[in-house]
Amino acid sequence: MSQVNAVSSSTKTKRIYRKGNPMTATEKQLASVARKRVTHKEVKVFVRNPLKDRMIKVCEEDGLTQAQFIERLIEQELIQRGLLG
């Protein structure tokens, strides 16, 4: 019952990565931001800590990202002012 010619997974040679070198985490993030810049504009704001903390809780409860939450607020305000259909 002995195994003859058994090859363990650790002794097998690894398959060569055929698509070139994999991207680093930083390169992946930069590529993602570059794709977003085609259809989005960046907004940098400072918000008081208590407001930000409450926004995070609401986002978690509703399953939204913070960007989605802020986009909704902007849309609601523009609709209310009659600037968005």
Results as ranks from 00 to 15, higher is better:
Q68S: 12
V38D: 04
E61M: 10
L78Y: 04
L64R: 04
L83P: 00
K12A: 13
I79T: 12
L83Q: 11
L83I: 03
L84T: 03
R48I: 13
G82M: 01
K52A: 14
R18K: 13
T11M: 09
T39Y: 04
R72C: 15
A6I: 05
R54C: 11
R35Q: 13
P50D: 07
A25H: 03
A6D: 12
T13Q: 14
V58E: 12
T13Y: 04
Q76N: 14
D53A: 15
I79R: 12
S8R: 08
A67H: 05
E27H: 03
Q29R: 08
P50L: 00
E27G: 01
K28G: 02
T26V: 09
K52W: 11
V47Q: 01
R48A: 13
I56A: 10
K19R: 11
K41A: 13
T11C: 08
L83K: 08
G82T: 00
Q80D: 06
K52I: 14
L51N: 10
V45K: 06
P22Y: 02
P22I: 00
D62S: 13
R72Q: 15
N21M: 08
E77W: 03
V7G: 03
A31S: 04
M23Q: 06
G63R: 00
H40T: 11
E60W: 02
E71S: 13
V58R: 09
K28Y: 04
T24G: 01
V43P: 01
A25E: 07
T65A: 01
H40E: 09
K41N: 12
Q76K: 13
K14R: 15
E77F: 06
L83W: 06
C59F: 00
V58L: 14
P22S: 02
R54T: 15
G82S: 01
V45G: 02
I70Q: 05
R35M: 07
P50Y: 01
V43R: 04
T13D: 10
T39G: 02
V43W: 03
S9F: 10
N49G: 08
E60M: 06
V33Y: 10
M1W: 08
Q80T: 08
S32P: 03
Q29V: 12
M55C: 03
Q68V: 01
H40V: 03
